[in-house]
């Protein structure tokens, strides 16, 4: 499925500056196929920027970004293999659009400018709604959903093209804990089907019990390792500048910590 055998996402010495200020400093990150990776860090750590670098929305000052083995801007038609779930706060919830129309937008990536969606695209949108168990919400305006329902809508949109890579920006913001658990289970299931999942979050504790690896970010990447190992590294303290609640993830087998410094 994935082009080549290399990692799905690879960042080599990526540095990003904004108005002269370094927001990402020499980031090295490698995410393999069917990995479920969380990028965690405090507010302003550059998490969203890192995601945008992978998406090709932000051009790094130096370093190399490879997605499916190519720079994100040279992906062309392969862009349809990336599913992106933006931060809810970036969406105008009063926008006059229904759940179904929102999900249908996911198909525009392969349609091209000026082309109209065809019956196959409508079917794909309907299938994505069913996959996420929100088919009955199809005609509702997006402003009339609960936070948990809305999150499923944007995941459905990201899944319409059967992506190989799913990127989520703070997907659990404003969602209550019970719904969040169900949500991570859903992402876990997607990962089991072979989708590479990368999510950005400040929600360390909950994330850790579901993901395969955690990348701790605060301008630099402090560690990229199995979640159960983060607790014993200096990473969290270095990242947050103080002691924080450590992560727990019992059963996972121990593997070598991949330090990037």
């Amino acid at each position: 499925m994935t082009s080549g055998a290399g990692p799905v996402v690879q960042l080599k010495h990526v540095t990003v500056c904004r108005s002269g200020v370094v927001v990402l400093d020499d980031i090295n990150l490698s995410v393999n196929k069917a990995d479920f990776c969380a990028i965690i860090g405090p507010n302003g750590a550059g998490k969203t920027t890192l995601l945008k670098v992978i998406l090709g929305l932000v051009e790094p000052k130096s370093g190399e970004v490879l997605v499916f083995g190519k720079p994100p801007r040279e992906l062309g038609a392969q862009k349809a293999k990336i599913g992106y779930v933006p931060q809810v706060s970036s969406i105008d919830l009063r926008f006059p659009i229904s759940v179904f129309e929102t999900v249908l937008m996911g198909t525009f990536a392969r349609l091209g400018v000026g082309a109209r969606p065809r019956s196959a695209d409508y079917q794909a949108a309907r299938a994505a709604l069913e996959r996420l168990g929100i088919a009955e919400l199809a005609d509702k305006p997006i402003g009339r959903l609960s936070a948990g329902q809305r999150q499923r809508v944007f995941i459905a949109r990201a899944l319409v093209n059967n992506p190989e890579l799913l990127l989520l920006d703070e997907p659990t913001t404003g969602v209550d804990t019970a719904v969040t658990a169900g949500f991570y289970t859903l992402l876990r299931q997607l990962k089991e089907t072979g989708i590479t999942v990368i999510l950005v979050s400040h929600d360390i504790g909950v994330v850790a019990s579901y993901v395969d690896s955690v990348a701790c970010l605060n301008r630099s990447l402090f560690a990229h390792c199995r979640p159960d190992e983060v607790q014993c590294t200096e990473a969290l303290r270095a990242m947050y500048g103080c002691d924080v609640a450590y992560l727990h993830h019992g059963e996972a087998p121990h593997i070598v910590v991949e330090e990037h410094e």
């Binding site: 992906l75 933006p86 970036s90 659009i97 937008m105």
Partner: peptide
């Protein structure tokens, strides 16, 4: 008539439109 859906996409969610490969700036 031709660009109805594309203009709708860039107005609703410009970032997702860029990610989807739409020529957002041109639109």
């Amino acid at each position: 008539a031709v660009f109805y859906k594309d203009l709708l996409f860039i107005v609703f969610d410009p970032e997702a439109a860029i990610v989807a490969g739409l020529p957002v700036e041109l639109l």
